[in-house]
Design a protein around this nucleic acid. Sequence first.
RNA 1: GGUCCAGUAACUCAGUCGGUAGAGUAUCUGCCUUUUAAGCAGAGAGUCGACGGUUCAAGUCCGUCCUGGAUCACCA
Length: 497
Amino acid sequence: MDNVKQLLAVRRDKLQKIRDLGINPYPNHTKRSHTIKELKDNQEQFVADSQQVTIAGRLVAMRRQGKIGFGNVKDESGRIQIFVRKDTTGEENYELFKLFDLGDFVQISGICFVTRTGEYSVKANEVTILSKGLRPIPTVKEKVVDGQTRRFDEFADVELRYRKRYLDLLLNPQIKRTFEIRARIMREIRTFLDGRGYLEVDTPTLQPLYGGANARPFVTHHNTLDMPLYLRIATELYLKRLIVGGFEKVYEIGKNFRNEGMDKTHNPEFTAIELYEAFSDLDGMMEITEAMISTVAQQVLGTTELQFQGQAINLQRPWRRDTMLNLIQEHAGFDASSFDRDAIAAFCGEHNIEVDENAGPGKLITELFDTFVEPHLIQPTFVIDYPKEVSPLAKSKPGNPKLVERFELFIGGNEYGNAFTELNDPLDQRERLTAQSRLREMGDVEANVVDEDFLEALEYGMPPTGGLGIGLDRLIMLFTNNTTIKEVILFPTLKHE
RNA sequence: GGUCCAGUAACUCAGUCGGUAGAGUAUCUGCCUUUUAAGCAGAGAGUCGACGGUUCAAGUCCGUCCUGGAUCACCA
């Protein structure tokens, strides 16, 4: 018999022994009177009064010695020591206590007191099993040395942590903070936008056509309708339809799905917010981006100055704004404003930047930007004036037909958001999407597809509109000082074991 | 996808020059009525990621593959 089977068999055996005592190892009801935090908050009084309490939680440590035993019970609010004596619980109940294993959910009734060594504890007069565990839980021990908690045999295997996130949360409770911050960020974004009169909406995740970004989709099939459906890569085109329909301020927070590679900043499904505001524009989107992110930081973290990977980042408004071409000039010493493809391609070649033969000058300019500029944009920076060639949904910049009114937001060398003055000229939009479909024919699998229904909606008239998208997982990474997107997603996508 | 690193007991990790697989924790047995990384004595527990090769002999050397991490490329 191998070790795991042996360990499982021991637990099964104890389970049967509990049943043999006439005790249900999975009772329906709990009689908790206090959370552990409530015990701690009232320590002085509860000890003075020998307060009778009933706590419930997971048994996370056990130190048995003959006819007594110490253990530690943990609920979501905290962790406390229990003290069990045979002559206090009685013979029969002590038999049950001896069948407890680490990881079991237990209920302890007893009085609050302080042990000889000064530890606040519950002295049990009755122990109850709430849920018997059948698998051994990895044991992480802690010792406090000079106020610092040292941990032993930490549950640290990154792969195991992601695959068995429940164990990660249980054994590495500090991980929970990331997801608490995540939830608060979401709530504060909603509070902020609701306060500005925005309406939260839901648009389809399953779409007959996909659009709104450059990406390959996941494809699925609807059996009854016998048609292909795509998991959305963005919410953009549906939200704009709502602007056509007369809503003036809408936003959606939800999952997007992109069928492409994974790395530290890309998970196949990720959470984004998109918002659209009629009668606004790129300047309006910069204002709302600054206001929203700095407000959320203040609400969630209590400050707009944060530390990210050893760098101090200041989210205090206003944020820097500069054009892509200026920034390339500054960091690469190259003037690309001519949009002369040959000259730009030659410069790329000199700096070992791969040049796709189908790439136009605009595409090459963004590659120069990515290489020379992006890593240096540590403090929040709005990069404006993007090449039209790479921005099929953004409105042209007056006075320069090669550029559009678009920004991307960079913080700490990473991209966080993308916004345009939205293109509302239906004929121009049709030309742009048609140009994208030509790129598709030349092999660009991520080029946009022509969405006739969307174009028809624009033909009914869409007001001048500002639109913004922000990758929320990355924002959460920034706020929690994580460099890996998997750390901020509870169940990140992994390959099969 | 390229390169580099890692995968050994349930957990955390050693394993030298190729020579019968190791420790701590956890588990089991015994002792122990104020311990706290409890302690003492003993025991069980492994397809050394998978497959193939070299060799008298492979955890160790070689090849292929799987999984994860780092990095580069691609990608927002």
